[in-house]
């Protein structure tokens, strides 16, 4: 399927030498028609070299920009190189590349602009810490209300976007807490999104960027960012020929 479409898998990585190589290999194996772009967000370890040796295209940022800046760099690349579909996959290995087909299927069949992989529909049996689950439930409630659409897993970074969404993200991408904020951005720009049930595995290595102690602080900040986003002027998308 989708033979003529140019597909890019964007893997943002910051000091992920332990798992980035494996993720690149898996994506190549499961989705041979796709190009893999590893965005090295100023890593101080061998992330860039390892990804390169596994056959990924590596975009080295000169210093650490954070997840938002790194993702947007990937989308700018996808936009300028004329990719039709961009899929973001975490470098820590929690997203299974075998599930990418489900995201692509949603883009093609359900005609959504962005397909979001969700841990919480279809009984995938996600077991996170209780704090995290409460936090995600609150985000989900707030974001679903604002977006007027049920979004069960707004913090999921496992997503596929079509050309229209790539164009939007190249132009404007939230910097601080991109996953939940992107949902609001898509709603403001009238792009369609849909959720797809996916399984997520344990992380291969590294710590989640959200530790237990900081989770409440994180939640308050994200809710504040979402609140502010509601008053931001959405960017104007130009029609592509």
């Amino acid at each position: 399927m989708e033979n003529r479409k140019k597909i890019l898998v964007i893997v943002p990585a910051y000091n992920e030498e332990g798992s980035a190589g494996k993720v690149v290999e898996e994506v190549h194996a499961d989705l041979p028609q796709a190009e893999v772009l590893v965005v090295n967000d100023g890593s101080t370890d061998l992330t860039s070299e390892i990804a390169q040796s596994k056959g990924a295209v590596v975009l080295d940022l000169p210093f650490n920009l954070g997840i938002g800046g790194a993702m947007q760099a990937g989308y700018k690349f996808a936009y300028e190189k004329g990719y039709d579909i961009a899929i973001q996959v975490d470098a820590d290995g929690q997203h299974d590349p075998k599930e990418i087909q489900k995201l692509l299927h949603a883009l093609e069949v359900e005609k959504v602009d962005v397909a979001i992989g969700s841990r919480f529909i279809g009984g995938s049996g996600y077991k996170g810490s209780i704090m995290r689950r409460i936090g995600i439930a609150i985000f989900s409630g707030v974001i679903s209300t604002i977006a007027r659409q049920r979004i069960t897993d707004p913090t999921s970074g496992f997503r596929a976007s079509n050309r229209k969404a790539i164009q939007l993200f190249a132009l404007d991408y939230p910097q601080d807490y991109p996953e939940p904020e992107v949902v609001i951005l898509l709603h403001q720009c009238h792009l369609k999104m849909g959720e797809v049930p996916v399984g997520m595995s344990e992380r291969y290595s590294g710590e989640s960027s959200i530790t237990k102690i900081r989770s409440i602080y994180y939640m308050v900040k994200v809710l504040l960012a979402i609140f502010v986003d509601c008053f931001k002027k959405p960017p104007l998308l130009e029609q592509e020929g």
Binding site: L59, D60, P62, F63, L65, G69, Q72, A73, K76, Q175
Partner: peptide, 13 residues
């Protein structure tokens, strides 16, 4: 600064 860093990385590549 962010836009410059991204542009720099793309051009260097």
């Amino acid at each position: 600064n962010k836009d410059l860093a991204q542009r720099y990385a793309l051009l260097e590549m």
